[in-house]
Simulated scan of single mutants.
Amino acid sequence: MDFSDFKIVRFNCKSFPPSGFERQKYREYNLTPLEVECETIEDALSLVQDAAALLVVAQPIPALLINNMKRCQVISRLGAGTDKIDIEAATRRGILVSNVPDFCVEEQADHAFALLLACTRKLFQQRPLFLKGHYHRARDICRPLRRMSELKLGLVGFGGSAKAMARRANGFGMKILATRNDLSKQDSLASQLKIDMVSLDELLHHCDIVSLHLPLNSTTHHLFNRSRLLTMKPGCILINTARGGIVDENALANVLREGHLAAAGLDTFQVVDVHAGHSHPPDHALLNLPNVVITPHTAAFSKESSRDVSFGGIENLIAVLSGASPPARNIVNPDVLNPATR
């Protein structure tokens, strides 16, 4: 099948340029996407009107944009999260939304565990003391550190990245608790690693470290507000490589300042737009705290994840344009395949 006649719009081409793996797939299928970077939704309106497909990394796709699409068959997310796409609007228009849910579970777990270690060993707090020659002070702040095998890790969510995190924690001899919507569901890895499946409240009460592995939606938005943060075990460490909006970041800054939580390791933010087209120093109370380790949403990055997300995202697109369907696990709105349910 010749795909050269399909208009495909590839967003975020400056902030997230197409990789060599992505261009390899372009050549394989004779694709010539229109490569754009839009500062506003209005900039994108005329571009999508007659597009057959969209390739999206970080571009918001609200109902305003979707309702302007006349020919679109698929919005292919080159990534996992789809919180910036109006799924309901796409479904109403009969547009399939796809993603690549497992492309970076290993990288995310590596990154989350790196943040965990940086926080538990106070690595970033030691650096400025070392550079000032305050070696004794650096040693003093490390005297209360805990042995990893004595700590309990709580996983909020138990999908791919959480399971990868559990395997790493098990190697350190940590006790692992986890929570998810269906606590009764049997899981072979949970049984193998002797993971206790418990309620969220019980997990927060008992765990020394809590790592978030949830999608952002109306249920999880600010799930970790001030009251929930205060139910966490005193001295607990919070790790977030999921989505910034799951945590009320203003509340987190206050709870850290007050000393109830010991530290936080953050790779995702709501208050800082790490995908902005311009560069300027961010400004938020969280970023000035010495016990907060921050990275600019880089948990997914590796050569292998770039390959997997490029291949997966384009294969999803090609499946739809060919009149077929992507793998079921890659379909975000399966109701679109059944017009009777729309």
Rank of each mutant, 00 (worst) to 15 (best):
residue 58 A to P: 03
residue 282 P to S: 14
residue 319 A to F: 01
residue 265 G to I: 00
residue 160 G to L: 06
residue 287 L to K: 15
residue 102 D to F: 08
residue 225 N to G: 00
residue 261 L to P: 02
residue 207 C to M: 10
residue 19 S to K: 05
residue 319 A to M: 05
residue 182 D to L: 11
residue 17 P to A: 01
residue 99 N to A: 08
residue 329 R to W: 07
residue 89 A to I: 11
residue 194 K to Y: 04
residue 249 E to W: 02
residue 152 K to D: 02
residue 261 L to C: 03
residue 284 H to F: 14
residue 293 V to R: 08
residue 174 M to S: 01
residue 58 A to M: 04
residue 288 N to H: 14
residue 59 Q to A: 15
residue 225 N to I: 00
residue 55 L to P: 09
residue 107 E to Q: 12
residue 14 K to E: 11
residue 325 S to V: 10
residue 257 R to A: 05
residue 159 G to R: 01
residue 277 G to N: 14
residue 171 G to P: 08
residue 78 L to P: 02
residue 42 E to Q: 10
residue 46 S to L: 03
residue 76 S to A: 07
residue 74 V to L: 06
residue 10 R to E: 10
residue 189 L to Y: 01
residue 301 F to L: 13
residue 128 P to D: 01
residue 43 D to G: 06
residue 170 N to K: 04
residue 89 A to M: 11
residue 232 M to H: 01
residue 237 I to P: 00
residue 146 R to P: 04
residue 81 G to W: 06
residue 184 S to A: 11
residue 234 P to Y: 05
residue 162 A to L: 11
residue 336 V to C: 12
residue 236 C to K: 08
residue 140 D to E: 12
residue 192 Q to N: 11
residue 140 D to T: 13
residue 81 G to A: 08
residue 110 D to I: 06
residue 95 I to M: 02
residue 43 D to M: 02
residue 199 S to F: 08
residue 235 G to M: 02
residue 231 T to F: 00
residue 41 I to R: 09
residue 36 V to K: 10
residue 95 I to P: 05
residue 192 Q to L: 12
residue 61 I to C: 05
residue 219 T to Y: 12
residue 301 F to Y: 11
residue 282 P to E: 10
residue 220 T to V: 09
residue 233 K to I: 07
residue 316 N to S: 09
residue 256 L to S: 08
residue 56 V to A: 06
residue 105 V to N: 14
residue 23 R to G: 09
residue 75 I to S: 05
